[in-house]
Write a protein that binds this DNA or RNA. Structure first.
Length: 202
DNA sequence: CCGAGGATTATCT
DNA sequence: GATAATCCTCGGA
């Protein structure tokens, strides 16, 4: 198991979003249970000029974490009920992040299913708020360091088998209804072709 | 299958 | 006071 090093994150956000495809999200629950998922969908949010990025308004209590060092989690609350997980990217001082939009459940299926009681398997982790629910991720993990030994860290990202370019698809980011062009249409959403766990675009 | 509308609150204007 | 990097349920075809 190779934990992605901080240098992995301290690069252009689109590069990180691309290379996170195929990597493993490892969540260690408070009771020690480990949940693992293969990342199959990401989105890039890049800097104050990106009018879809929370950092567009500059430093605020919420966005402060995005200005900090890379390799940390940015977990925020939206729509009054959902938590979304991001990985901070780019060198310190440049606010940017990759949103983890979907994973393929690999390990801890019982607990994942329990967190998603009553849902079909395909709905367990096929969306940014679905996967945080399935993996027990909420605001308590905002700011936590992603660069740490899995099993000791609450959240880790592990190198996985690379996804070949031929299997990568791109398109506009999801849910940016009122964001002006060109930001709304930039192809900053990336996913693994043919994965049944990719979210449905709306 | 599909589209419309509601849920529910932190955050920023 | 409006909006939100979403999800779910319900009604109709």
């Amino acid at each position: 198991m190779i934990v992605l090093p901080r240098a992995f994150y301290a690069r252009p956000t689109l590069t990180v979003a691309r290379e996170l495809l195929g990597c493993l999200l490892v969540r260690t629950l408070p009771d020690g249970q480990r949940l693992t998922g293969r990342i199959v969908e990401t989105e890039a949010y890049i800097g104050q000029e990106d009018l879809a990025c929370h950092a567009r308004a500059g430093r605020t209590p919420r966005t402060e974490i995005m200005f900090g060092p890379p390799g940390h989690a940015y977990v925020y609350f939206t729509y009054g009920m959902h938590w979304l997980l991001n990985a901070i990217t780019e060198p310190e001082g440049q606010p940017a992040a990759v949103l983890i939009r979907a994973v393929e459940p690999l390990e801890g299926l019982d607990r994942i299913a329990a967190h998603r009681a009553g849902r079909q398997r395909r709905e367990w982790t096929s969306g940014p708020a679905r996967l945080t629910r399935a993996f027990g991720i909420d605001g308590a993990l905002n700011g936590c360091d992603l660069v740490g030994p899995p099993g000791r860290a609450a959240l880790s990202l592990i190198a996985g088998p690379p996804v070949p370019d031929a299997d990568v698809r791109t398109g506009p980011r999801v849910g940016l209804g009122s964001t002006p062009e060109p930001w709304r249409s930039l192809a900053w959403r990336l996913w693994v072709a043919d994965s049944p766990d990719v979210s449905k675009a709306r």
